[in-house]
């Protein structure tokens, strides 16, 4: 068969060589990196204390608490779905852990483990409902969001008699659990929290999965064209449920951090954070329609969030303005991403 169409295998003279610059422009995270630099320069100029090493530790910590969740949320968005329950799921996870240990007077590690199972079950519920009912994930997870919000408040009041849990600070296993989820080191006067480590590991694992495993290939495929993926034998349902389990796992990590940073949990926390995770992922280059994005981008998005939320404080502005900045940033980043992508794909 070399004779037939083989003869037409001539080099297409219209195909230009891709320059390294164009390759760089094709990276999903590029827009967010440019944005991060701009935000950094902006606050470096307007806020004197922003450039201090201690400030940097604070910014990184704020970024890590968002970034831990933004990485799996980014993967989920690349897979074409949302999770509006991610914010309150963090609180649920902390509450389950705390109340189980307290009520059972068990070692806190038992609570931590039970919480992992329960949180994964929430994720599985989201994924299962989505794939069974074929309703949009926006609706399914909006439902879980509201149910979890109600359960957080309701169960906490029912069991603890107030809106926060009882302290578990003096219970067995607390110091070692705190070491894993909420310790910090001081390096050259800068306080570095262990959440930074969790963040780095989660982003690295998410990037590895996305770019170098079969599952990663399937994530891109179910988000970019679920029918085409199904037609070539990709297990669409398993992939989506796996993504929701990933979000649940990160919610468990965040929840345990929330619990062991202090020793009590406020049951009303977490509402609204789900949007910040999504914003970080979108700023980081995730397409809202799925099929495109990166985990590293979500980390840059979370870093922009950290810089903005703390930079406003260092600039001694009214923190009420934070949401305005976040919104403006989201719009700018999305526009920039759209523009960059258009340039990158203008190879045709």
């Amino acid at each position: 068969m070399t004779a037939g169409p083989g003869s037409s295998a001539v080099i297409d003279e219209r195909l230009l060589r891709t320059s390294p610059l164009r390759k760089l422009l094709g990276r999903p995270e590029l827009g967010s990196v440019v944005g991060a630099l701009a935000v950094f320069l902006f606050f470096a100029i307007v806020a004197d204390s922003f450039l201090r090493a201690t400030s940097f530790g604070t910014v990184l910590y704020a970024a890590s608490t968002i970034g831990i969740m933004a990485a799996p949320v980014a993967l989920l968005m690349i897979g074409g779905e949302f999770d509006l329950s991610a914010g309150v799921m963090v609180t649920s996870s902390a509450l389950v852990s705390s109340m189980f240990s307290y009520q059972m007077t068990a070692n806190v590690w038992v609570g931590v483990f039970v919480s992992l199972l329960v949180t994964l079950a929430f994720g599985a519920f989201n994924g299962f409902m989505l794939t069974r009912t074929k309703l949009p994930s926006f609706i399914i997870t909006l439902g879980t969001f509201l149910m979890l919000t109600g359960m957080n408040l309701g169960f906490t009041k029912l069991i603890s008699g107030s809106v926060s849990t009882k302290t578990i600070g003096n219970m067995e296993g607390f110091p070692s659990a705190r070491k894993l989820f909420a310790s910090y080191w001081t390096v050259g006067g800068v306080e570095l929290k262990v959440t930074l480590l969790w963040w780095a590991v989660l982003v690295a694992v998410a990037t590895w999965i996305l770019l170098r495993t079969r599952f990663g290939n399937w994530i891109f495929a179910v988000g970019g064209g679920a029918d085409a993926a199904r037609a070539v034998g990709v297990p669409v349902i398993r992939t989506k449920i796996g993504l929701y389990l990933g979000v649940a796992f990160a919610a468990w990590v965040s929840g345990q951090h929330l619990l062991f940073s202090y020793d009590v949990v406020q049951s009303g926390e977490g509402v609204g954070n789900e949007l910040i995770y999504i914003i970080a992922a979108v700023i980081g280059g995730c397409l809202i329609t799925g099929g495109y994005g990166s985990a590293i981008g979500s980390a840059v998005g979370a870093f922009i969030f950290g810089m903005t939320s703390k930079g406003i404080v260092y600039a001694e502005w009214n923190p009420d303005w934070f949401k305005f900045f976040l919104g403006a940033m989201l719009l700018l980043a999305t526009l920039l991403n759209a523009w960059v992508r258009k340039r990158a794909e203008a190879t045709k």
Binding site: G216, V232, Y292
Partner: peptide, 27 residues
């Protein structure tokens, strides 16, 4: 095909070859 994915990822979609073992099993 899935339009946003690179040609090579599309070509092997659903039948991706892997190398390595255990946690280092990769495309």
């Amino acid at each position: 095909v899935v339009p946003l994915m690179p040609v090579w990822r599309n070509f092997f979609l659903g039948s991706e070859p892997t190398t390595g073992a255990g946690p280092f099993k990769r495309l």
